Amino acid sequence: MNRLSLTLLFVAVFLLLVALMWWGYRNRARRQAKVLPALPTAPEDLLASVRSGAAETVLPPSTGVYASTVTGASWQDRVAVGDVGFRADATAHLLADGLLFDRTGATPVWIPAGSVRAARTEAGIAGKVMGRDGLLVVRWAVGEQEFDTGFRADDKDDYERWVPALRALCSNQTGEGHDGE
């Protein structure tokens, strides 16, 4: 084989692998769409007030990277329905009504206060390993289905305030304390 043939063979194999990955992700989205409940959407008036700076927040906003949302069954089972499984720059806003991840170039992720179950720090989520306590992970539920959403703050010191505030938010909604595990 000459160099051109090897190059064309390599490109063909590469394109085949990319197509197989796309096909697998598309099939995962189809399977999940049948079994996962519809995720909540952020109310337009809330988005407008947060973006204008008029919203009353529990904590100052935290900038960083929204890592992804996974099902509660496994930290590797990324949600493929919609775009909540994709990484994006984001600003996290903790409000009395819930948690908003206002993502750049993607739809906002809204977690109503009544859905929050726990908060903790973790090393990684869905193939994104950030180091010890590198991610803020929020456990939340829609109906009986639990989800974990990961956020990597630009300032890791934010976690010292966010984890207790999120735990207080979920205990205020349920009337009981959570240990975050």
Score class of each variant (00 low, 15 high):
residue 1 M to N: 04
residue 8 L to A: 12
residue 10 F to I: 13
residue 10 F to D: 11
residue 14 F to V: 11
residue 15 L to V: 13
residue 17 L to Q: 12
residue 19 A to W: 11
residue 20 L to H: 01
residue 21 M to E: 14
residue 21 M to N: 12
residue 22 W to T: 02
residue 28 R to A: 13
residue 28 R to G: 00
residue 29 A to R: 05
residue 29 A to Q: 03
residue 29 A to S: 06
residue 34 K to L: 15
residue 35 V to S: 11
residue 37 P to Y: 08
residue 39 L to T: 01
residue 41 T to R: 12
residue 45 D to S: 13
residue 45 D to I: 05
residue 46 L to I: 15
residue 46 L to R: 10
residue 47 L to G: 04
residue 51 R to D: 12
residue 52 S to P: 01
residue 53 G to A: 03
residue 54 A to K: 12
residue 54 A to M: 07
residue 55 A to S: 14
residue 56 E to S: 11
residue 57 T to L: 14
residue 62 S to G: 11
residue 63 T to S: 13
residue 67 A to F: 00
residue 67 A to G: 01
residue 69 T to V: 14
residue 69 T to A: 06
residue 70 V to D: 03
residue 70 V to G: 06
residue 71 T to I: 02
residue 71 T to V: 07
residue 73 A to D: 12
residue 73 A to G: 09
residue 74 S to N: 15
residue 74 S to D: 14
residue 76 Q to F: 03
residue 79 V to E: 03
residue 81 V to Y: 06
residue 90 A to H: 05
residue 91 T to G: 04
residue 93 H to K: 04
residue 94 L to D: 05
residue 95 L to M: 13
residue 97 D to M: 04
residue 98 G to H: 02
residue 98 G to N: 06
residue 99 L to K: 01
residue 101 F to I: 04
residue 103 R to A: 10
residue 106 A to K: 12
residue 106 A to Q: 13
residue 107 T to D: 15
residue 107 T to R: 12
residue 108 P to C: 08
residue 108 P to L: 08
residue 112 P to I: 05
residue 112 P to K: 05
residue 115 S to I: 02
residue 117 R to G: 02
residue 117 R to H: 07
residue 118 A to N: 06
residue 119 A to I: 01
residue 121 T to G: 08
residue 122 E to M: 08
residue 122 E to H: 07
residue 123 A to H: 10
residue 124 G to W: 05
residue 126 A to C: 05
residue 126 A to D: 13
residue 132 R to W: 05
residue 134 G to T: 07
residue 136 L to I: 08
residue 138 V to S: 00
residue 139 R to P: 00
residue 141 A to D: 06
residue 142 V to P: 01
residue 146 E to G: 04
residue 149 T to F: 05
residue 150 G to T: 00
residue 151 F to N: 08
residue 153 A to Q: 02
residue 157 D to H: 05
residue 157 D to L: 06
residue 157 D to K: 10
residue 168 A to Q: 13
residue 170 C to H: 06
residue 173 Q to V: 08
residue 174 T to C: 03
residue 177 G to H: 13
residue 177 G to F: 14
residue 177 G to E: 15
residue 181 E to Y: 09
